[in-house]
């Protein structure tokens, strides 16, 4: 099936392009939105590949991630599974350098986006986070802002020159599958939405700044099953355009949404393989014990 987007966009070559909206969302946006098919809004683009090399992360003296090397393929969904406290969230927070925001936390090793070392000298974490967006466990819309302002918040940071703010917000909301539910109340407070809607609002806020990678840290753990299902569908659509890493404690969820799955235990990466393989014939016995529910 040919997706009904007009022009496939390529990854922007430099920042100027991105700052002024290199992957212009409007071209794939409003006209197609009206016929109701949510997925059509999301025009494919190339996400970035991510490579972790011997990544170590610490909280003070606690060694939370131990020498992990792992590759995330572009435009794929990779699930990170493992018992709580295994370091999967910490690992993901290293990919957009959020880990270091926790007092006393530090990370060592290499994380590359395509071929840029994001822990290299002179790399501004702020720029990293523009390219690597993040959706958190608990929906966290800005409590003082309206729905519109929440989505626009990130765009406004980098300047709205050359951006049709309204159109971009509408596009992002449509991508997140929320537009039809909030189109009449964009001025209402974001925190007035239901939990699932709030989480989709946060996804809209994240994609409104046009990242190339989206990290999701247990995005459905605070949501009911119906809302969870909607987010999972959304993830399938979003991978057309973004590289996605999702942390989940829910193995069914990993099985439903992920192309590949990585199993972590005690800060170490045990196994990373196509999802089907992880759940049917894992190479490591510990993986097998975990996915079959022997410990948890």
């Amino acid at each position: 099936m040919t997706p009904p987007y007009t022009r496939p966009t390529t990854s922007p070559k430099d920042m100027t392009e991105l700052e002024t909206g290199g992957r212009d969302p409007e071209r794939a946006s409003v006209a197609e939105r009206t016929d109701g098919a949510q997925a059509r809004v999301i025009a494919p683009a190339k996400g970035r590949t991510i490579a972790l090399r011997d990544l170590n992360a610490y909280y003070g003296d606690t060694h939370a991630v131990r020498g992990v090397s792992l590759d995330y393929a572009a435009n794929q969904v990779t699930a990170m599974i493992g018992p709580s406290g295994c370091g999967k969230s910490t690992l993901v927070r290293c990919i957009n350098r959020m880990h270091e925001e926790v007092p006393g936390a530090r990370a060592e090793g290499q994380v590359t986006l395509d071929d840029i070392d994001i822990y290299g000298d002179g790399v501004d974490p702020t720029s990293v986070r523009r390219v690597v967006g993040m959706v958190f466990q608990k929906p966290n819309p800005f409590p003082t802002m309206s729905i519109f302002d929440n989505v626009a918040a990130g765009i406004r940071l980098s300047g709205t020159r050359g951006v049709d703010l309204r159109e971009r917000v509408e596009w992002a909301l449509a991508c997140a599958g929320l537009w039809d539910e909030v189109r009449d109340r964009l001025g209402a407070p974001g925190v007035g939405l239901s939990g699932g809607q709030q989480q989709r609002l946060c996804i809209a806020r994240t994609i409104a700044v046009e990242p190339e990678v989206i990290l999701m840290d247990e995005p459905c753990s605070a949501l009911d099953p119906i809302a969870t299902l909607r987010i999972e569908d959304l993830i399938q659509d979003l991978k057309e355009r973004y590289t996605i890493v999702i942390v989940t404690h829910n193995m069914q969820q990993a099985a439903r949404v992920a192309d590949t799955t990585a199993f972590m235990l005690n800060g170490e990466l045990i196994e990373h393989a196509p999802t089907e393989k992880i759940f049917s014939q894992p190479a490591d016995t510990r993986t097998e014990e975990y996915v079959t529910g022997k410990f948890g």
């Binding site: 070392d117 501004d124 720029s127 300047g159």
Partner: peptide, 14 residues
């Protein structure tokens, strides 16, 4: 500035 990451505008950084 590493190539390929969007630069933070000088105005914002300042």
């Amino acid at each position: 500035m590493s190539a390929g990451l969007p630069a933070v505008a000088g105005r914002r950084r300042n």
